[in-house]
Design a protein around this nucleic acid. Structure first.
Lengths: 311, 311
DNA sequence: CAGACGGATAAGGGTTCGCTTATGGCAGCT
DNA sequence: AGCTGCCATAAGCGAACCCTTATCCGTCTG
């Protein structure tokens, strides 16, 4: 019984899927399946079995899950505790949605590390909304920035903004929005994102959606008149100012959405995450989130991490 | 960072010695030293270093110890939880002192498993008194039977008996007891045992003590007149009845000693250990402890485990 | 019934673990 | 100085871990 096997088990149980767990860990599906197999053999119990509604825990698996979860969490705590005792840089791993990774994460963390006197080694990683709760619970991330999350975590709003539909100024759109061609960023492929929820609300079928590798590419395509895009209004300010795009009204937009910082409950919060939470309530953080393009010196710019999760 | 490495670290920290930890785990000393080395390298911290007064924790080690200890304990809990959920035989591992292992442990566990309706896989293992607290804390044993122990565990008296000096009837002993030749069982080599405390109280020098591989052998030697032995009075009843030995008074004997059952605190007690605790307060258990030779059918006799600890 | 999806299994390979014996410091003691 | 006790390190070896790719199999679906 290794910590790696327990970690795989916990991830499978929480995500309800071996495949999803493998993607979250950044390994192949059989790797997780095999770790699960080793754990099953060790305990002589299936622990978790496939049913029509995902993976369901056996009685033994139900008993094991909370214990395994705590062991995995303690493993991360152990590292952090020794690091902190030695005065090494604290590590802050922030999981963000694709939109935030593209525009906000880098300047925000830059401002954060510059502000906080302590030496903090902060990094951001891309995650699907559905992965976020389990990432925080398993200490694979210290905090997440994205939609509101539940499942016993501490999710507090940090920034309110407007989600709108955007199109080229002269383009004509006929009929209902569900028949338009939609050009969206990677968040369109994340079922839990605000963008996906918006498209679902407009009853846009999958065939009418084209996902671009980043938000800017989607806007660029929309500016050429081939369809309608979505976006956070103030993040598209440059395109709007240059009149490449204009806001298009729909039955569901403009809509106010809210970025939330999600962490462990306050009593089990890492110092760095607590520090980030405090920073996000300051005017300086608001300023960065409002016009993120303003303040990153190129020398300190770090490209967003495009792997799902850290090593 | 492996559970095995953490376990080695915890054991070294609690016993204050790499060598003792290795003996407790039943492996060579370099095995423990190497596990410690791997953990040190992983964390970039010595964690625990040699000083004149044993091994002392670094700041990082102090932070790590409670976390590591809990992880090790949870590892044992995980096994137990799944076993229990599947209705498998519960496992009860009882650490005992050498005297109890020789006379009491086997019939006592036999009576216990027979009495408790549930299927319990009980086994006894020999341990030094100094090892006992850490064995229980690390879930290497569910309970111990021996002298009273402290260090935050639940140690309750279960049987009161008399420790006496024994010698051949016609042997003459001159001068103070400290000048006699003492012939003792393995407990004489355990500094924390009642026997060793008795000898220390009589100021018997090490040269005057000969340790035998078991208590019966020591009594047999004493019966041949070559020295004085020690023993629990009622356990020596056969020898006393056959007049091979008689009780010899000393300034420190007879003395009342008390066997204690030591377990985790009540709120973290395994079901099997709780069940044993209850059994030990019954008249049936008293009866077995009073005359342990009476009731073990030969078919069910299991020789005591003569390794220090279980796998 | 044919596909598609998702999990389990097989086979192979590189790395780590965990144990051994043998040996190298290093402090304290005779 | 030399000895001894104790920890650290080296070298070797088998087993386990952990990852990969390829394949099999059950179930759900059109």
């Amino acid at each position: 019984m290794t910590l790696g096997q327990l970690s795989a088990f916990v991830l499978v149980a929480r995500l309800g899927s071996v495949t999803d767990a493998a993607r979250t860990l950044g390994v192949s599906e059989p790797a997780v399946s095999q770790a699960l197999g080793a754990l099953r053999q060790h305990h002589g119990d299936k622990l978790i079995a496939r049913t029509s509604t995902g993976m369901t825990l056996t009685p033994g698996g139900s008993r094991l899950l909370p214990i395994a979860s705590q062991m995995v969490a303690l493993g991360a705590d152990a590292d952090a505790a020794v690091r902190e005792a030695n005065g090494l840089a604290e590590r802050l791993q922030l999981a963000v949605t694709s939109t935030l990774a593209e525009f906000v994460a880098s300047p925000l963390l830059e401002a954060f590390t510059a502000r906080s006197g302590k030496s903090i080694d902060a990094s951001a990683g891309l995650a699907q909304t559905a992965e976020m709760p389990v990432l925080v619970s398993n200490r694979l991330a210290d905090a997440t920035l994205g939609p509101r999350l539940d499942s016993g975590l501490d999710s507090t709003p940090v920034f309110r903004c407007g989600l709108v539909a955007l199109a080229a100024p002269r383009a004509q759109h006929h009929g209902r929005p569900s028949s338009w061609q939609w050009l969206v960023g990677p968040s369109g492929a994340d079922p839990g994102s605000d963008t996906a929820r918006l498209l679902a609300q407009l009853r846009v079928p999958d065939e009418a959606i084209r996902v671009f590798p980043n938000q800017t590419a989607a806007w660029s395509a929309a500016a050429s008149g081939t369809g309608v895009s979505t976006g956070i209004e103030h993040l598209a300010a440059p395109q709007l100012r240059r009149k490449e795009l204009v806001v298009v009204p729909t039955p569901a937009t403009p809509v106010t959405v809210c970025w939330h910082l999600t962490t462990l409950p306050r009593d089990r919060l890492s110092p760095a995450a607590a520090s980030l939470r405090h920073f996000l309530s300051t005017p300086a953080a608001m300023q960065v989130m409002r016009s993120p393009g303003a303040g990153v010196p190129p020398s300190r710019f770090r490209p967003p991490v495009y792997v799902t999760i850290w090593s």
